[in-house]
Amino acid sequence: MKNTYTDSGAKDTRSGFGAGLLELGRRNDRVVALCADLTGSLKMDGFKKAFPERFFQVGIAEANMMGIAAGLTIGGFIPFTGTFANFSTGRVYDQIRQSIAYSHKNVKICASHAGLTLGEDGATHQILEDIGLMRMLPGMVVINPCDYNQTKAATLAIAEHYGPVYLRFGRPKWPNFTPEDQTFEIGKAITLVEGKDVSIFATGHMVWMALQAQKLLADRGIEAEIINIHTIKPIDREAILNSVAKTGCAVTAEEHNRYGGLGDAVAQVILTAHPVPQEYVAVNDSFGESGKPEELLAKYGLTPENIAAAAVRVMERKKH
């Protein structure tokens, strides 16, 4: 499988969510949406305009929003909550834990502006811990799609899954390279490029970075396998183990702290089933800061070059 992925025109993943939500509104009259004063940022205006009776503005009150969403499920609705990732997780962790996760409510927690690529607003808003927080909750599905098309497809798919879901996406315009007509299968990793030397597992925005790293590595004669882990929980054990059985080493790439995220999720699979060397490309246990997304990704070590370097390192470790 050659790396033929090209950017069909940069689009923000949050707009993929907005487009998916609007389509869901048409398809399923049980879908309702709630937003905490970020309707424009979450691209929920389309749904709000088309289905005003199914849209609830809750104001700047995220804890209340999570509880109201839980309550709406009790009448058989499928609530989608929208706010920034920071306010979708850490700020309301206990509300999600008790009223949603432990109570197994069919709430879709949709979180924009995740990670460093939020940019100039700085570390107060750049959550890098949300994947870890959410994957620790029993029964929570955690999804971090890679581009506009996949975010839209994921938004449609999670309405068909009964149970709590955390859907993570971002702010910046980002290469849109996956098929427009894709069906999204929760928990099913997607192998984008096959390779025999090193497995690169990436999630969210870092999938595109991994595809660029693949080209850098190919220039050096290294055949990297690129796998899009859009669902971090439940994670696709089979896809991970099949790949590392072939390559014998792994790199993980995520826009998240190195603790608790994709890297740890993959490591848990590998360590308990087929131990091979692994390298993390992630934020090194720090907060972010203000800056342009590309400047931040460079400063915090989340570039194609960083991924390629990690691949070389892990292949070196494989020899010992």
Binding site: G67, A70, G71, L72, I74, G75, F77, Q95, Q98, Y102
Partner: peptide, 27 residues
């Protein structure tokens, strides 16, 4: 029982959501 409670302050929000659902359902 329709929701877990005990961590205080959360039941009112859930009840409001259920009340909105009743309105939407014409119940």
């Amino acid at each position: 029982i329709r929701v877990a409670t005990g961590s205080l302050g959360q039941g009112l929000s859930v009840a409001l959501g259920a009340a909105l659902a009743k309105k939407l359902n014409g119940d």
